[in-house]
Amino acid sequence: MKEFKIKDLEVAYGDQTIIKQLNLEIPIGKITTIIGPNGCGKSTFLKTIGRIMKAKHGAVYLDAKDIHELSSKEFARQLAILPQSPIAPEGLTAQELVSYGRYAHQKGFGKESAKDQEIVKWALEVTNLSELSHRSVDNMSGGQRQRVWIAMALAQETEMILLDEPTTYLDVAYQLEVLELLEDLNRIYGCTIVMVLHDINLASRYADYLIALKQGKVIVEGTPREVITKEMLKEVYQIESDIVLEEQSKKPICVSYRLMNKKKLLEKELKVVG
Rank of each mutant, 00 (worst) to 15 (best):
I228Y: 01
M1G: 13
V196P: 03
L170A: 02
Q84D: 08
Y174S: 07
Q95A: 12
K56H: 10
F4K: 11
S43P: 05
I193E: 05
Q146W: 03
A114R: 08
L170I: 01
L162H: 07
K2A: 05
G142W: 00
I67R: 07
Q84C: 06
K7H: 01
F4G: 09
T192V: 13
F4L: 15
D138F: 11
Y13P: 09
P224Q: 09
E177S: 09
A173V: 09
L97S: 03
S43A: 06
K230C: 05
K30P: 02
M1K: 09
H57Q: 14
N38G: 05
T223D: 07
E10P: 00
K121Q: 15
F109I: 11
E247V: 13
K65S: 05
T44F: 12
V178N: 05
R258M: 15
R145C: 00
E269C: 04
P37M: 08
D8A: 11
G50A: 12
D199P: 10
L265T: 05
M195A: 15
V98P: 00
Q106I: 07
C191S: 03
E25N: 13
A207H: 01
A155V: 08
E125I: 00
L154M: 14
A80C: 11
D208Q: 09
E221D: 04
F45E: 10
L202R: 14
M232W: 03
L79S: 04
W122K: 15
S204C: 10
Y13F: 08
G14H: 09
P166L: 11
S249K: 11
H198E: 13
S113W: 06
D8L: 00
Y169W: 04
M140T: 01
G190C: 09
